[in-house]
């Protein structure tokens, strides 16, 4: 299996005046292609900082970060923007959809910055929306959609650019349990189709959907273990509820 992510002694220090905060301290791990990994930890554990660095939104203070074999720790802002555009798909807790755009246009957004021609863009975005089950709702604005539907638009937007890595930050945090389960189902589907997924969460139930859990505390890796197959939550769990959506 090829490594998609490898972090090596990654640290991130924030300085505000004289105060120095070590949010992430010498963290090392690697994630293989097709893996579904949860990064867990209470607030202040450094998991958000970790996610920002994995998403190339932020640079580590020291250490190295290999994304698909390429060291991206010291890239320029615009080079990082390009990497985010092509290789990373973000799924946010609060969806972060633009209300001025409809579902299709929201999904098209990363492709716009890739310079894809509009005809091709429409086609790819429509196809991706169909993959998450929203073919019928393409022209709806975000405020006309339910939370679960909005998050699916968000996932379609992350998928549209066929990234190497899908990064989800508390993807079910704003959803009720039914919609949350649906979203996690979608993630399991994507996992089965070979996508590499990292879900950052503080929710044990969410983490139990993954194959492996990396627990952070005070900026360090507390544990890094596969999920016991007996405890793992899988798709079958859902039963009939998915049909009611």
């Amino acid at each position: 299996m090829t490594e998609v992510v490898r972090v090596d002694e990654l640290s991130r220090i924030f300085r505000t005046g004289a105060v120095e905060v070590q949010a992430v301290r010498s963290v090392s791990f690697s994630i293989e292609e097709g893996a579904m990994v949860a990064i867990m930890g209470p607030s202040g554990s450094g998991k958000t900082t970790m996610m920002n660095m994995l998403g190339c939104l932020d640079r580590p203070t020291s250490g190295r970060y290999f994304l698909g074999g390429e060291d991206v720790a010291k890239k320029t802002d615009d080079a990082l923007a390009r990497i985010r555009n092509r290789r990373i798909g973000f799924v946010f807790q609060s969806y972060n959809l633009l209300t001025a755009l409809n579902a299709l246009e929201n999904v098209e957004l990363p492709l716009v910055y890739r310079g894809m021609a509009s005809g091709e863009r429409h086609r790819v975005a429509a196809q991706t929306l169909a993959e998450v089950g929203l073919s019928e709702l393409m022209s709806f604005r975000p405020y006309e959609l339910s939370g679960g539907q909005q998050q699916r638009v968000g996932i379609a937007r992350a998928l549209a650019g066929t990234p190497d890595l899908l990064l989800a930050d508390e993807p079910t945090g704003n959803l009720d349990s039914v919609s949350g389960e649906e979203i996690l189902n979608l993630f399991l589907d994507l996992h089965q189709r070979g996508r590499t997924l990292i879900i950052v969460t503080h929710d044990e139930q969410v983490a139990l959907h993954c194959q492996r859990i990396i627990r952070l505390k005070d900026g360090r890796v507390l544990s890094d273990q596969p999920v016991d197959p007996a405890r793992r939550r899988i798709k079958a769990d859902l039963g009939t509820r998915a049909l009611t959506s």
Binding site: G55, D77, D78, A81, R84, N85, L98, L109, Y113, R157
Partner: peptide, 11 residues
Amino acid sequence: LRKALGASRQA
């Protein structure tokens, strides 16, 4: 968000 999705400074 636009930056996260890959918008450059120039964009």
